[in-house]
Design a protein around this nucleic acid. Sequence first.
DNA 1: CCTAACATACCGATCGGTCTGTTTACTACT
DNA 2: AGTAGTAAACAGACCGATCGGTATGTTAGG
Lengths: 186, 186
Amino acid sequence: MDTKSLMVDIATKLFQQKGYKGVGLNELLKACNITKGALYHHFPNGKEELLIACLQSLNEAITTDIESIFQQHPSTQEATHAMIEKLITNLETDGTITGYTFSSIVSEMASLSEPVRNACGALYEKIQDIYRNKLLTDGFSIESASSVSLFMTASIEGAMMLCLTQKSTDPLRTISKILPNLLKEF
Amino acid sequence: MDTKSLMVDIATKLFQQKGYKGVGLNELLKACNITKGALYHHFPNGKEELLIACLQSLNEAITTDIESIFQQHPSTQEATHAMIEKLITNLETDGTITGYTFSSIVSEMASLSEPVRNACGALYEKIQDIYRNKLLTDGFSIESASSVSLFMTASIEGAMMLCLTQKSTDPLRTISKILPNLLKEF
DNA sequence: CCTAACATACCGATCGGTCTGTTTACTACT
DNA sequence: AGTAGTAAACAGACCGATCGGTATGTTAGG
């Protein structure tokens, strides 16, 4: 793996876990086992540029990951269940958020940096699109599919928040149990 | 208003908007028009102690606020609608999150400080309790009420996140439109 | 030999926190 | 009533550590 990709990979995890301001440059460099020279060679605009690269990388990773799950299951309901199961496994194995979320970055940076806000927005959008398309093939109307996909995104994101504060995966499990009711409703 | 309360009030807003690490002590002191001496007199353990005081204050404020809304409306559905309307108004008037959320603090601090994590957990718990009790009077079973109240908390929290990235109040509006479907389901 | 890919020393600014005054308010005693 | 004492409520200078960022090397590959 080349240095740049390595940096993005490690930085992504750190940013997800501790937030943008929560990760210092020195800490980051030590984790990657590189120096400032390397960082500013690949990312001349420094930390924020690295963050945006991380968000873009995350965008691709999440998209392909979720998309593959949604292709493997016939209905939105089953796909969602499988996806949340995977989220739970992730959360259980490394204790912190490393999955399809980046809430810390959103809430920290949305009001501070437009580029970062846009990158986060793009990511949410893409996730919602996958849900939406699946819902459409399930037979939902365009309007319903849009609303429900937003609802799914929001509730899963919120549930991860609750998992963090409770140090438990129960909230995600509950969401997983309740979501089907919503998907049948329409 | 005494100095201590003033500090908590202003700090609460700043922490909600910029996150914990996003607010420097000097910035905070300037906003309150006080000095370090005053801060460390009232909060000997510094910034983190202030944060916890803010979370506790927020706890009371949110609780009484939501509780009053839920008392004024007969059903969970109507109360929820009114509450989200208020959230939207808040978001529109000052552009940033100042309402019933503190997601930035959760995602930043949950893995770093146990006391902070607990304080955040207590707050979510209390909000959920209000929902749950209302659902019980609506005739929901204990189990259903617990699940649905968690679902409500998560989806509203997540929706605020989406509002931030989109710089729009639409996600909250969508949630508000969809939630009743869930509340009828059971 | 020239450029990409680093390494490292260094920078001012800011971080949260401490320490030592000083002012104010209130109490206790004569 | 006047005064002395005391503790709470600040104010502000100062601290080392760390922040993100820069400037100047050095090294290795084509």
